[in-house]
């Protein structure tokens, strides 16, 4: 199995484990209010969703504007399983929601013949079609009035750790994929499908694989989301805003990187929280401006900006030596 070996030095896990442990301990220290804890939980969920989107949009270069379909499906399948007369335990329901979303995303297989903007446009179609389909399928989604989940006291608090666990898992997976030969093949497919085939990469298989994994993780995220808000409606879960959100988070943070979608998700959640409260009309406009600026000036988003700053600092430090040289 050496051909799948990932180039991940074990010590690189140390800071990551420390950060996750600190975050896990955070709600136990009494300083954090339920409001703040909920905000962080939402951020964890968005991190998972953005990173999973990034496997498609960043590693494979297939920018999807339809991931809300998997988010919504995962959410509603999980909700229905928990509302059943023999209710499934929440984690099982989330997992099955994710599997359903993964299988559903396989339906987009024919679209993988398209690349670039053509693929993106097709995903808009599929996303919107799913929204309409599930809005009219009232037995499943409750139609416009949505679905309320059974009240589980303490679930909202516990979800902090579940969401953290999911985010930690997805960050690890993203990192390992990026550094493994699988990630190399995905980047090769992104650069040139035909050239990838010429070196033996089965592009069709890997695109399907990544699409299913990405869809499944976004589906699981949808399930946790449903439990967290204990009320979901199709217009929101399958909404185009949600698909755009996954794109925005990755692009703001830095598409194709691991750190990028994490940063992007945090910024997205915070901005949304503060702007939605005071200027509900403004926040989408602000995202639009941010997106244009990033695409124009720093295609790697916040990550690229950070790298650029680091380079500038290093150059300034080195500058005196340069002056002294003959």
């Amino acid at each position: 199995m050496r051909r799948w070996a990932a180039d991940v030095p074990f010590w690189s896990a140390v800071p990551f484990v420390i950060v996750v442990a600190a975050l896990a301990a955070l709600p136990l220290s009494l300083r954090i209010s339920p409001y703040e804890r909920n905000l962080v939980t939402v951020a964890f969920l968005m991190i998972s969703g953005a990173l999973a989107w990034n496997w498609m949009g960043g590693y494979l270069g297939q920018v999807s504007f339809g991931h809300a379909a998997m988010f919504g499906l995962g959410g509603f399948v999980a909700a229905r399983l928990m509302l059943h007369e023999n209710p499934a335990p929440a984690p099982i329901a989330w997992l099955l929601g994710g599997i359903a979303a993964g299988v559903f995303s396989l339906g987009a297989h024919p679209m993988l013949r398209l690349r670039g903007p053509y693929f993106s446009i097709a995903t808009i179609g599929v996303g919107e079609a799913s929204r309409l389909l599930f809005t009219y399928w009232e037995e499943f989604t409750g139609g416009a009035s949505g679905v309320s989940l059974p009240i589980d006291i303490g679930m909202k608090a516990r979800l902090y750790w579940w969401a953290l666990g999911l985010a930690a898992l997805v960050v690890t997976a993203s990192f390992v994929i990026r550094r493994s030969t699988l990630g190399l093949q995905l980047l090769a497919i992104k650069a040139d499908v035909d050239a990838a085939a010429d070196v033996g990469v089965n592009a069709t298989f890997y695109q399907d694989l990544v699409m299913v994994l990405s869809g499944a993780v976004v589906g699981i995220t949808g399930g946790l989301w449903a439990s967290f808000f204990s009320f979901i409606e199709p217009a929101d879960m399958f909404g185009f805003d949600r698909s755009i959100g996954f794109v925005l988070m990755s692009v703001i943070g830095g598409v194709g990187t691991v750190l990028g979608p994490v940063l992007g998700a945090v910024v997205f959640v915070l901005l949304r929280q503060f702007l939605l409260a005071s200027y509900p009309q403004l926040y989408l406009g602000l995202y639009g401006i941010l997106l244009i600026l990033i695409i124009l000036f720093e295609p790697l988003g916040l990550t690229g900006l950070g790298l650029r700053l680091a380079r500038a600092v290093r150059r300034r430090r080195r500058a005196p030596g340069v002056v002294a040289a003959p």
Binding site: R3, L184, Q185, L187, A188, D192, G200
Partner: peptide, 16 residues
């Protein structure tokens, strides 16, 4: 593959 380093380009070939 313009987005991969020289070594990574060759590594992609070495997988299969």
């Amino acid at each position: 593959f313009p987005n991969l380093t020289v070594a990574e380009n060759v590594t992609v070939g070495a997988i299969h």
